[in-house]
Amino acid sequence: MTVKLMIEDLSKKYENGDGIQDINLVVNSGEILTLLGPSGCGKSTLLRSIGGFERVTTGRILIAEKDVTKQPPEKRSTIMVFQGYNLWERMTVFENLEFGLKLRKVSKSERKQRIMEMLTMLGIEAMAAEYPQQLSGGQQQRVAIGRALVLRPEILLLDEPYSALDAKIRVQMREELKKIQRRLQITIIFVTHDQEEAMMLSTRIAVMKKGEIVQVGTPSEIYNDPKDIYVASFIGEMNFVTADTDRVAAFRPEDAHITSAQEAGENTYHGTVQQSTQMGHYSQLMVKLEEQTIVLFAEKDAFENYPEGTDIFFEVKKMQNFIKGVEK
């Protein structure tokens, strides 16, 4: 595994005090790394720093072992797919893809071949002569990805590329991106605030909070072994119950199973069902404990057996403890 991108002690401070700090990150060749966090956590700033759109305050950025910290975007081997696609309205789809190739002095015949290949791969070869405004959101998205990929960047940067698409197309585009990534073995850095999207796409996820990276790991590492309450609550559903004065115990809804008063063991809790819903292939129960309300996932028919107001016992099989007050 070769290192494609290395970020050392990076910080970028804006005048108003926002920004990112103490960023250290290694991205390997062929990886999809997701920068995940709520809006304002600095994930876009980090991505824009990698792309060369932000002048960083301190630290270094190395792409393929070359220091690019001071280089403008046009000198870097990264290409960004912007949130709003940013296709050039005055150019056709073909010209949008051609512009960068022309700048790279690729011959006319090769340009044509590469562009048509790319458009075919993305299934939009019929739209080559059209203008971006004439295309649907999903098609524009494909053109934006095509415009980036046709230049064969070392790293493809994606800034919440699916946020403007409706749910169904979004899922479809994710699948497509994964397919393309597998085929071209390209390195991708992906920014999103959608944890589901991050879980689905990523080789590794870097969870960000207030301008810092809190935890980096594979989706299952992040999900099964979150470093603190923040990560635990940001990724997936997590229930918190008070363990003692400084600590909080946490468990995933699927890590508890319903039991009875007779079988009650060490990690058994007792509560009242507050709400009971059938979610399709499973039931979701909201259970009121002494202080908190927690969520349980149970088998499909459980909602019938435990209607609202009934007593319930459940045993937690996997529990994690976190120090209180980590989340400010």
Binding site: E74, I79, R147, L151
Partner: peptide, 26 residues
């Protein structure tokens, strides 16, 4: 949009070329 210019910079156009190919025509 500023990002239209950034997109041009990103694919390899310098600031002056960006102005004359993207900003000025618009």
């Amino acid at each position: 949009y500023r990002q239209q210019e950034e997109a041009a910079r990103d694919v390899g156009a310098g600031p002056i070329r960006t102005f004359f190919t993207i900003t000025f025509p618009s």
